[in-house]
Design a binder for these strands. Structure first.
Lengths: 80, 80
DNA sequence: GGAAATTTGTTCGTATGTATA
DNA sequence: TTATACATACGAACAAATTTC
């Protein structure tokens, strides 16, 4: 999947939207970690700061939770 | 302590004056780091650029010294 | 237990664009 | 035009937690 990063919105908002969509469609399943910050820097071709800004948005929304030294995990239905 | 940031002077000059005063009265002791740029953005309710402009003034005066990745340190008497 | 690699956390350095006075 | 101020974005250094060997 390609990401355009055009349009009027800030890049970090657009990246947050992409990740949000991947969480909703199951590409990034609950309880699992999303790709690391360096990996997302590569995929989107942006700096780590920008990736972190995007993740910050999702954490604020309660969609994800970041743990130092581990990664950023998708919040959601466990199993039941 | 609250800081008003009114008056005719530029905001960054006023912030520099506040920090300068805190160095003089010992609130920010020698050899120690003053609060980080993000922290001061929060305290004063200004952008990082403005905080950096204030710190630049103090660095120019020789009151402080900024080190990348670490912080801004108060110059001054060590112990003796 | 130690060393190295991975990953996130924090902080400063720099540049660009926009808006205001 | 210049000075001030904010938001955004990339780059780099340093720090801490985790994992793996």
């Amino acid at each position: 999947m390609s990401v355009d990063l055009l349009g009027p919105d800030p890049i970090y908002q657009q990246i947050a939207a992409v990740i949000r969509e991947r969480i909703r469609d199951g590409t990034y399943p609950p309880q699992r970690a999303i790709p690391s910050e360096p990996d997302m820097c590569e995929e989107f071709g942006v700096s780590r700061n920008t990736v972190r800004a995007a993740i910050h948005v999702l954490n604020e929304e309660g969609l994800t939770r970041t743990v130092r030294g581990k990664g950023t995990y998708v919040i959601g239905k466990s199993a039941g």
